[in-house]
Nucleic acid binder design. Structure first.
Lengths: 241, 241
DNA sequence: ACGCGCTCGTGAACGCATTCACAAAGTCGA
DNA sequence: TCGACTTTGTGAATGCGTTCACGAGCGCGT
């Protein structure tokens, strides 16, 4: 059991925490493929946009255009949720929103704890996209006592030592790390220790988590470097003659 | 036709075919696979860490551990850059850093223009990970004249109308969008119009770019929703008994 | 000098994701 | 009611990426 490996799209670790190389034959019983799951939020956003525009039904072709993907992909992705389309017509927008939200677990509210209130932490705390999808920040923590007490986005910054209290008191299961890289692993360990089972890491470092804990990362400078690669390549073969 | 726009989600691209959608038999002349390119910055960071720790050589196994990936993957990825390892020993850290930097185009400096100085824009402007990899912010723009003149991270915020001047004056080829979603497409169009050929989008919306322009996106709320999915799944089958 | 052990580099196998292509299933108008 | 049209849902084909497995090359100790 516990072959729930950490799903991490961009790399970095999974359930390798303890050191066992790879005793996991990737069972994937009845799950929706990761690639599809990763697109569901995209469809959801597109659907919200369409709903605001007054659309009540949408074809896979139209949804694909709005989401910037291929229509066959849309149909296959949605088929994993069940058959909620009507042939000859398309999908009912509201119904689809409901089913996707359901599949993503967005029908319930999630409490999140955010660690690190530097530049990025500030921005994340104030980011509207979290609250609008049912994610509520239950606590804003920082190791620097100088910042404790500060008010950000309607919340008071508390000290890292209050972590356990915040997590257990609010049923927090998701943690966001926005600390400097050197502090990230320790923060991660403490989050896991407090009972957090999903972590979103913004610190530019590779984190190790035990099996059963999901880890995703967002790395701003990596994205720029990837763009740099393509840009570099473009200019290199810019004048082939 | 031509819904074959630049891929957005995790892949980059689109820059290849200059129009014809299906006639492109995936040429990929001498290119490094996208999946490998996406990991190079990760290796680079790990190597920097190892170098600071005093290591002068590193095996694929050790680098893999540091980067949180599989060692076969490391070897295959690096083999795309050429054969820079020594059998029986491993890779020389400095040399590898040099080759990867080279492949990513990080040996030259890139000028970046950042549009939108809200919460996120602020954080990005102050983010150290950019400058440390050779990315220099050539301009900080915003459409709100109330913010123009503000000083952020040593730079003065200028008005969006100065875009052309900033781009052409500094040879900017990369643009970062940190505006609200509704403004993003227009900003994107203006960036492209000014000559920017690579765009990193933080706004939660799907952008359309012409062929030849690379587009990547970072979506904070999407990441949380994906975590939500896994969390939801965990609690659903938490007690199988 | 020479073999032994280590590690790279890479062909081959495998699995997942995307795309194609079409039958099934529904709507709509006459 | 019926037939033409639209769009879904999905097997099949294709392509890409990961992993395996091992031969080739290199350093080192004897």
């Amino acid at each position: 059991m516990s072959e729930q490996r950490a799903a991490q799209v961009d790399g970095a670790v999974g359930a390798v925490g303890a050191g066992t190389p790879a005793t996991d034959p990737a069972p994937r019983r009845r799950g929706i493929p990761d690639a599809s799951v990763a697109r569901l939020p995209l469809y959801l956003r597109s659907l919200h946009g369409l709903a605001e525009g007054g659309r009540t039904t949408v074809s896979s072709e139209a949804l694909a255009a709005a989401a910037g993907v291929n229509s066959a992909k849309v149909r296959k992705d949605l088929s994993h949720l069940g058959s909620y389309g009507t042939r000859g017509v398309g999908y009912e927008v509201d119904e689809l929103v409901h089913h996707i939200s359901n599949a993503l677990g967005l029908t319930q509210h999630w409490s999140v704890v955010l660690v690190g209130v530097g530049n990025l932490g500030h921005a994340l705390a104030g980011y509207g996209g979290f609250a609008s999808r049912g994610f509520q920040i239950a606590g804003l923590l920082d190791a620097d006592r100088g910042r404790v007490g500060e008010q950000i986005a309607g919340l008071m910054v508390r000290h890292m030592d209050d972590l356990d209290e915040v997590v257990r008191g609010n049923g927090v299961s998701i943690g966001v790390i926005a600390t400097p890289a050197r502090a990230a692993q320790e923060v991660c360990d403490r989050l896991v220790g407090a009972g957090v089972t999903s972590i979103l890491n913004f610190a530019p470092t590779v984190l190790q988590v035990p099996p059963g804990v999901d880890l995703r990362k967002v790395d701003l400078s990596m994205e720029l470097q990837i763009l740099s690669f393509h840009e570099h390549r473009k200019s290199a073969k810019g004048v082939p003659a």
